[in-house]
Design a protein around this nucleic acid. Structure first.
Lengths: 139, 139
DNA sequence: CTGGATCCGTTTGGATACTG
DNA sequence: CAGTATCCAAACGGATCCAG
C-alpha cells in the first residue's frame, strides 16, 4: 500500500476524539479540553486533593501546599469555586474565618484524580528512567 | 477551641499529600506534580488518546488534533517520547514515514486519562451551569 | 513528509506591599 | 486571618520560513 492509499484508509477511519470525553461538540471543543483548561493548571488538583478529607481554612491550605503563593491560592480557589468544585464559607468572626470545602461535584472528580495519582506513584520511576535514557542517548 | 489550639490540632493531623501519588519525596516533589508537569499541558493527553487505537503518522496526527500547530505537535511528541510514553519509528522511504505509537507505559496511562475523560463528559454541563451561576451572581 | 529555527505576542505565576 | 493590587520575569504557544 503506497502512502496515498494508506492516508486514504486512515481518513476512512475517523481518528480523533473517539474516546469518552473527547468527542468534539461541533465547534472543536471536547469535554476533556474544557476540564483540562480548568483543573489542568499547576495547583488545582493539589487543592482538590487537600480538601478531600475535610474542609480547610485558607492559611492552613497555604501551609499544606508547599510552594504555593498567596496569590495563586486565591486565584485557584476562586476558579474552583466558580466551576462549582469548591464551596467557600465565611464566618464573620474576628479575625474572619474562611473555610473551603469540596462540593459534591468536587468530590466526584477526586476519583479520577486519584486514579491518575496512583498511576503517577507507580510509574514515576519508570518515567524518570526513560527520561534519563533519552537524554543520555541524545548526548 | 481557639485559633491557636485549632491550628495546633491541624498540624497534628498531616494535611498534605496524603492521597496516593501525592506524597512528597523529601524535596517537595510529589509524583502527581511530576506527571502533571509532563502530560498536563495543552496537547499531551489529546495525543495519547489519539494513539490509543493504533500507531499514527505525523501528519495524520496533525489533521486529527484540530487546532494543533506543527511546532506544538513536534514538541509534544518529543516530550512524550522522552518520558517513555510514545515510541517513534522512522521508515527511511522517500518521502520518509514516521510513525508514533504508545509504549506499554503509554497504554497504561490511558486508563486514568479515560476516567478523567469520562468524568469530563458526564459533568461538563454541570460545570458550565456552575460557572454561569457564579458569573451571574458576581454581576 | 517530517520536521528544525526563529520571532514574537500572550499567559502564567512569583515577589512584594498594602487593606479590612 | 484572608485577602487585593501591582510589577515583572519566565514559560507557553502560534506563525512563518527553511531543510533533509
Amino acid at each position: 500500500m503506497n502512502a496515498r492509499a494508506e492516508s486514504q484508509a486512515a481518513s476512512n477511519t475517523p481518528l480523533l476524539h473517539t474516546a469518552p470525553g473527547f468527542e468534539p461538540d461541533g465547534r472543536g471543543n471536547c469535554p476533556m479540553r474544557e476540564v483540562l483548561d480548568r483543573v489542568g493548571d499547576t495547583w488545582s488538583l493539589l487543592v482538590v486533593i487537600n480538601l478531600q478529607e475535610r474542609p480547610v481554612r485558607f492559611n492552613a491550605l497555604r501551609r499544606a501546599i508547599e510552594g504555593i503563593s498567596q496569590r495563586m491560592l486565591t486565584v485557584t480557589l476562586r476558579s474552583l469555586e466558580r466551576d462549582g468544585l469548591v464551596a467557600r464559607t465565611v464566618r464573620p468572626t474576628t479575625p474572619p474565618e474562611v473555610e473551603y470545602a469540596l462540593t459534591e461535584l468536587g468530590h466526584s472528580i477526586a476519583g479520577p484524580i486519584g486514579a491518575l495519582g496512583a498511576w503517577a506513584a507507580e510509574n514515576r520511576d519508570h518515567m524518570r528512567a526513560a527520561r534519563n535514557a533519552f537524554d543520555a542517548a541524545a548526548a
